[in-house]
Design a protein around this nucleic acid. Structure first.
Length: 460
RNA sequence: GGCGGGAUGGCAGAGUGGUUAUGCAGCGGCCUGCAAAGCCGUGUACGGCGGUUCGAUUCCGCCUCCUGCCUCCA
């Protein structure tokens, strides 16, 4: 049986997944900085790792999934100031919004969701260790920096040569740094800013140190899998490695996973380009019942290491495809669930695809073939298998009728109109029956006459 | 300047040295009072130029174009 293979950024190749402790799997994902609502690109990354954590569990691992919340950071301070609220208040409200957003996409809550503000002591401990090893220094401005050139392995994750980097090209270099590439571990507090007491004076943690501290604190080192989107590869993850391994946690992570971007019109989303959608914007345009899973499907039907392009058309396309699955489940009600036999047929092919670096496009192709066979054979067993396989990565668990009928039809009493139409049909008044069909279609409702005089309906 | 990803049929999206996934949309057929759903059938697409090969979309070289990172970034 081919075991799970994962593309490791460290080696730039697929490797068998072998956790540090047999049977256990630890997964640490860099979570949101809670200064604003998440956008559809963030949603892609979190959905990817939700899929990963589910598949690890299905594969039999005892999984500990950690996804932190960064609730102290420059952007939070800045945004809170603009809004005239305490930084903690803003962080709390955005964390709540994040939780709601995750639910809409059927993201399971992680096992642990540590917050940076609860880890300040651990971060300071780490900084002290780095200082004692000569890897950190206190600068004249009160900040504490990591001395990048003193860590021999710097650049090994992102494959960068220190001398090739163009530090300061886009952002002014802080004058207090010994080397432009050094990064802040601890920032001295400016007046009015939130701060914590420390041996370096009042201040707050730098951006990268929290993940080093929280990962080690929650699951120890090495963590089996550490994930995020590609943009975190450098500098964030590179700096995490420098901090943790510099402090003696070697290796910090056994396998690094990086998800590709979701683009807008083939370009990276960014606020300055104005091509930016929050997840809420997107879901707000979609059917309230179908939108969440349709979006999840849209996000996972491409491979996680391939870029995907956002457009309303492809989103709608994903929704159509998903409806096809639910139609099959409606027409052929699944038999009671039972354990999946992974050693044969569709399940084996599905598993082999997922085990090949989470190849969801192939996995869905298998599901499509299974769907066709369900429709052809009307087998309740196969229908149950379809639902079960979909369920392993968080799909097809809704009631088919509920899903297909979508959100509220408002004041329209669909069933009353169907009854009227059926009466007309019985009286052979086909013009009237067709008029009712057209009227409902104009309202976005499609009627499907079934044998035995039953009429079902669904959202167009 | 350094390092990286990619160009596949109308769209989305895999994969492979030769039988060229899968889906959505379209078209034809069956079914239906008409539809819808479903099933069946249908589309010889792999950026350009060379090379290796009996044979390349798949390997190699060059070129063109798109795109990412180089301390805000999912």
């Amino acid at each position: 049986m081919p075991s799970l293979q994962i593309f490791n950024t460290l080696s730039r190749s697929k490797e068998p997944f072998v956790p540090h402790r047999p049977g256990k799997a630890s997964l640490y994902v860099c979570g949101p900085t809670v200064y604003d609502l998440i956008h559809i690109g963030n949603a892609r990354t979190f959905t990817t790792f939700d899929m990963v954590s589910r598949w690890l569990r299905v594969s039999g691992f005892d999984v500990t999934y950690v996804r932190n919340i960064t609730d102290i950071d420059d952007k939070i301070i800045e945004r809170a100031k603009e809004k005239g609220v305490a930084f903690g208040e803003l962080a709390e409200s955005m964390a709540t919004a994040f939780r709601e957003d995750c639910e809409r996409l059927s993201l399971l809550p992680p096992d642990r969701e540590p917050r940076a503000t609860k880890y300040v002591d651990a971060m300071l401990g780490l900084i002290a260790t780095l200082e004692s090893k000569g890897l950190a220094y206190r600068a004249d401005n009160g900040d504490v920096y990591y001395s990048v050139r003193d860590f021999a392995g710097y650049g090994k994750l992102s494959r960068r040569n220190l001398d090739d980097l163009r530090a300061g090209e886009r952002v002014a270099v802080e004058a207090a740094k010994r080397d432009p590439l050094d990064f802040a571990l601890w920032k001295a507090a400016k007046p009015g800013e939130p701060s914590w007491p420390s041996a370096y004076g009042a201040g707050r943690p730098g951006w990268h140190i929290e993940c080093s501290a929280m990962s080690a604190g929650e699951v120890g080192t090495p963590v089996d899998l550490h994930g995020g989107a590609v943009d975190l590869q450098f500098p964030h993850h590179e700096n995490e490695v420098a901090q943790s391994e510099g402090a003696g946690h070697v290796p910090f992570a056994r396998c690094w996973m990086h998800g590709a971007f979701l683009n807008m019109d083939s370009e990276k989303m960014s606020k300055s380009l104005g091509n930016f959608h929050t997840l809420r914007d997107v879901l707000g345009q979609l059917d309230a019942v179908q939108g969440g899973e349709s979006t999840r499907f849209f996000l996972l039907r491409g491979h996680y290491r391939s870029e995907i392009n956002f457009s309303w058309d492809t989103l709608a396309d994903a929704g159509n495809t998903l409806r096809g699955f639910y139609t099959a489940l409606r027409e052929v009600p699944p038999a009671p669930p039972k354990a999946i036999d992974w050693d044969a047929g569709y399940a084996k092919r599905f598993r082999d695809a997922m085990n090949d670096d989470f190849d969801t496009p192939i996995a869905f192709a298998v599901l499509h073939e299974l769907r066709t066979e369900v429709n052809r054979t009307k087998s309740a067993e196969l229908s149950a298998l379809l639902k079960a396989l979909g369920g392993t990565i968080g799909f097809l668990q809704a009631d088919p009728e509920t899903f297909l009928q979508g959100a509220s039809t408002g004041a329209l009493d669909v069933q009353a109109r169907i009854d009227e139409r059926n009466a007309a049909k019985k009286a052979k008044d086909f013009p009237k029956a067709d008029a009712i069909r057209k009227e409902l279609e104009a309202a976005g409702i499609v009627l499907e006459d079934k044998p035995g005089g039953i009429t079902e309906w669904r959202r167009k």
